[in-house]
Amino acid sequence: MATHAAAEPKQLWLGGAEPMKASYGKLMMWIFLVSDAFTFSGLLIAYGLVRYSHPAFEGVPAEFVFSTEYWPVPEKVFEAVPFFHGYQLPLVFVGIMTFILIFSSVTMVLAVEAGHRNDKADVEKWMLWTILGGITFLGSQAWEWGHFITGTDKPTIVTDIINGVQVTKEVFGANLHVNQYGPQPFADFFFFITGFHGTHVTSGVILNIIIFFNVCMGLYERRGHYEMVEKVGLYWHFVDLVWVFVFTFFYLV
């Protein structure tokens, strides 16, 4: 008994045991997600810095018009919904997108639960729903980008200085050079933050498809556990978690 107790700590440090009772892959996924959280925080906090260094719109929301003089009110920028052209539906479409992503997070956690029970058919079903949810979200984001770039029916009059000469021009939509909704950084941050998040969703969908394929081929059933589903699940929930913050700090506040 004494020899057994002496041998145990030695074994711990030789890599025979899992630190913090999590497998290597799971632990590293968590550490990666912490580092990724810092990247997203950097982007969102930079947005906050630039926003607070611009004057805010001081009037009644009903009288809000687009101008490069002050930071726009987000709910006035994001009020378009597909097939409802001309209606003012503030934040409705982004609310639908939030719902889609939260729901795909639920189907992901259901896939993980099915993996714990080694229920191959259920894992397949819920992984497929998660992939569909991710693709739907990406499609919605593509539409939102398209709308943001194309702009509203009426242009905004923007005064710009080109080669030292003051020029007044009509601007529709936004890109990295002009922005009809407000100061230029507003459009830049929109593209960078939602774009960086969209890139994460894209890679999450690709990872989910790879794992879904492996589940269908019976790889994890032969292996005896579905931990790979859990690991991509962690990534997928993180993408949802980031969206919760983007939704609040970019669209709501």
């Binding site: 968590w30 550490i31 959280a37 925080s41 906050g48 810095l49 926003r51 607070y52 260094s53």
Partner: peptide
Amino acid sequence: TILVPIVFIAWLVLALLLEGGFIA
């Protein structure tokens, strides 16, 4: 291990949002 590093994010929020107010 996961939650403690978030403290740095909280600090950055405080520092940069105050800084943004001063720039304004």
